[in-house]
């Protein structure tokens, strides 16, 4: 796994690339946005880790440039940013980034996000028909979810949404994306429908830290189903 890491702060770059190398990633650090963009265009990287604010080309400008040049061959992009305001985060996600991490970075969170993103690239989750999360078991083939040995009664759309979320644990999924995937056959679905279904799943499947889960709403922009590290 090759990671292009754009960060202009030398100390942070050294620390973070240390974590990444220790986790087995192949990291190349860049201080300049233009240089980074050039490298990603010419060589093959699997994941880009971009800082938002860099002196010459900002992370977003690099992202925009790469999207034009690489199109479908675009690697996964995760933003690290000191700005956690809603409009900034939503703007990054709308611009096409796969996820974001608010600074200061934590090692566990960074590795978890990278794992989720690369898992999608390897196409692992989709291949598994059955997932066993301890108290929760998901059977994709039968479209059944079992919680504490009890079959959970879900509506059709709730099931669709739940199965898709379990396939994409740790990924930021925008509401628009979820509508396309889950409600593809239903016209005129508004984003509130997604919220209602997400709330419903949260309640019925106990997607809370007590059960080892977190269903995070990203400022109303989308959802990310996360595995909580320390379940009760």
């Amino acid at each position: 796994m090759r990671i292009a890491y754009l960060e202009d702060d030398g100390d942070v770059a050294a620390t973070v690339s240390g974590w990444l190398r220790a986790a087995g990633y192949d990291v190349e650090c860049f201080v300049s946005g233009a240089e980074c963009a050039h490298a990603v265009e010419s060589r093959c990287f699997d994941v880009c880790l971009f800082d938002w604010i860099v002196p010459d080309l900002s992370g977003r400008e690099v992202l925009a440039r790469l999207q034009i040049k690489l199109r479908r061959a675009m690697p996964a992009v995760i933003f690290t940013t000191g700005r956690d305001a809603e409009e900034d985060v939503v703007a990054v996600l709308n611009a096409g980034a796969d996820d974001y991490i608010v600074k200061p970075l934590s090692r566990a969170l960074l590795l978890a996000r990278l794992e989720a993103v690369t898992r999608r690239q390897r196409g692992v989750a989709g291949g598994s028909l059955r997932q066993d999360f301890g108290r929760l078991r998901v059977d994709h083939a039968r479209r059944q979810i079992v919680l504490d040995e009890q079959l959970v009664a879900l509506t059709e759309r709730e099931t669709d949404l739940a199965l898709y979320l379990f396939q994409n644990v740790g990924r930021a999924l925008s509401r628009e994306h979820l509508i396309q995937v889950v409600w593809s056959l239903t016209p005129d679905v508004d984003t509130r429908t997604v919220d209602v279904h997400a709330s419903s799943l949260r309640r019925k499947l106990r997607l809370n830290p007590e059960y080892g889960w977190r269903l995070v709403s990203i400022y109303g922009h989308g959802y990310r189903l996360e595995r909580e590290s320390s379940p009760a």
Partner: peptide, 8 residues
């Protein structure tokens, strides 16, 4: 949706 906010 307020309950989602409070859940979170």
């Amino acid at each position: 949706e307020l309950t989602a906010v409070l859940e979170q």
